[in-house]
């Protein structure tokens, strides 16, 4: 069987997810045995001028150039995978959407801001159709491998639509709320094996909000632990601001 041609691209991001790929370790060899990487800026300089079997996109779409570029990549790709929070849900870049775009431009570029026109931050699927999502900031490596296998098999990958708490409890972590710390786990999609909490950190919601969260119930829990609502909203918007984008924005 001919190995599928796979290309990695980055948009507005920290390239940390590419680093996660490069750091796959032993499994990287298995991955490279299954695919033919034709473009990957982090590790190689070659370019590919034909179609891609799989395009793996990191980063969010934050200006018109990016919109054009992602549309072209989509046209040339049989399968498109968005990976990392920036690409899948807008991620931290989405915080820009909480400000006036001109103010944001001035703050970053000073008086030259007009030379750097910007648009509201978009997740990749808010611009072009996406076939697979690998959530997380950064991506959870085992999930990337699972998605890659699904893409190569031509079968769908379902991102778990239940709370991080499920996996966290299975890992027998002491609940962050019991420690008196607010955690986004109860409203965030699982699939990361509660990676952060296993290592003593809280969940920041980087995998996106559940599709059907019990909002009133969550508010009761927040009130029970006397956590200020605006603090919770700030935590939520750190990664998830782009979910507010309307259809035509």
């Amino acid at each position: 069987m001919k190995k599928p041609k796979v290309a990695f691209f980055d948009f507005a991001c920290c390239e940390g997810c590419q680093l996660q790929v490069a750091n796959l370790g032993e499994q990287l060899l298995d991955v490279l045995g299954a695919i033919d990487v034709v473009e990957f800026r982090e590790v190689m300089s070659e370019k590919w001028d034909k179609d891609y079997d799989v395009a793996i996109i990191e980063g969010s779409i934050t200006d018109e150039h990016a919109v054009e570029r992602i549309k072209k990549i989509r046209q040339r790709s049989k399968v498109l995978i968005a990976y990392g929070s920036c690409a899948t849900i807008g991620g931290v870049n989405g915080m820009k959407n909480g400000f006036d775009l001109e103010d944001a431009g001035k703050y970053v570029y000073g008086k030259d801001y007009k030379f750097f026109p910007t648009i509201k931050t978009h997740a990749v699927h808010q611009v072009v159709p996406v076939d697979y999502f690998v959530n997380g900031c950064p991506i959870y490596q085992p999930e990337l491998v699972a998605v890659l296998k699904a893409a190569l098999q031509g079968i769908p990958y379902y991102v778990p639509d239940y709370a991080v708490c499920v996996e966290c409890k299975l890992n027998e972590n002491v609940c962050m709320y019991q420690r008196g710390v607010a955690c986004m786990g109860p409203v965030t999609k699982a699939g990361c094996n509660s990676w952060c909490i296993n290592n003593g950190n809280i969940c920041y919601g980087c995998r996106g909000i559940l599709s059907n969260p019990n909002e009133s119930g969550a508010k009761d829990v927040i009130a029970k632990y006397s956590i200020p609502m605006d603090m919770v909203m700030n935590k939520m918007n750190m990664y998830n601001k782009c979910r507010e984008l309307g259809e035509n924005e």
Partner: peptide, 13 residues
Amino acid sequence: EQKCLSCGNCTNV
């Protein structure tokens, strides 16, 4: 219905 967050903690434990 109002309270439950469907986190599955009750069944997992």
